[in-house]
Simulated assay, not measured.
Amino acid sequence: MIIVLLGPPGAGKGTQGERLAARLDVPKIATGDVLRAAVRDGTPLGLEAKAAMDRGDLVPDAVIMGIMKDALASPSAAKGAILDGVVRTTPQADGLSQTLASLGKTLDAVLLFEIDEDELVRRLSGRTTCDVCQRPFFGRQPGEACEEGGQTGTLVRRKDDEPEAIRKRMQVYRDQTAPVIDWYAHHGANMVRVDALGSLEEVEARMQSALGL
Rank of each mutant, 00 (worst) to 15 (best):
I2D: 04
V4D: 01
V4S: 02
L6M: 11
L6F: 01
G7T: 00
P8F: 10
G10K: 02
Q16I: 03
G17D: 02
G17T: 00
L20W: 11
L20G: 02
A21Q: 11
R23M: 09
I29D: 09
T31H: 02
G32W: 13
L35M: 11
A38P: 00
R40Q: 08
R40Y: 02
L45D: 00
L47R: 15
A51W: 05
M53C: 08
R55S: 05
D57M: 06
L58F: 05
L58G: 11
G66P: 02
M68F: 12
M68E: 09
A77Q: 02
L83A: 07
V86Q: 00
V87K: 00
T90P: 07
Q92V: 04
A93W: 03
G95C: 01
L96R: 02
Q98P: 04
L100K: 12
A101N: 10
A101E: 08
K105P: 11
D108R: 07
V110T: 03
F113I: 00
F113H: 01
E114T: 04
D116T: 04
E119L: 05
E119C: 03
R122G: 03
S125L: 03
R127Y: 14
R135K: 12
F137R: 00
F138D: 01
R140I: 04
P142I: 12
G143N: 10
E144Q: 13
A145M: 14
G149E: 14
G150K: 03
T154P: 08
V156F: 15
D160I: 08
A165E: 13
R167Y: 11
K168D: 12
M170D: 05
M170C: 07
R174M: 10
D175P: 02
D175F: 13
Q176S: 11
T177K: 06
P179L: 05
I181S: 08
D182S: 14
A185L: 06
H187V: 09
G188W: 06
A189E: 08
N190V: 09
N190Y: 04
M191L: 15
A196T: 01
L200F: 14
E201R: 13
V203H: 10
E204M: 08
A205V: 04
M207A: 04
Q208D: 10
S209F: 05
L211K: 02
G212S: 06
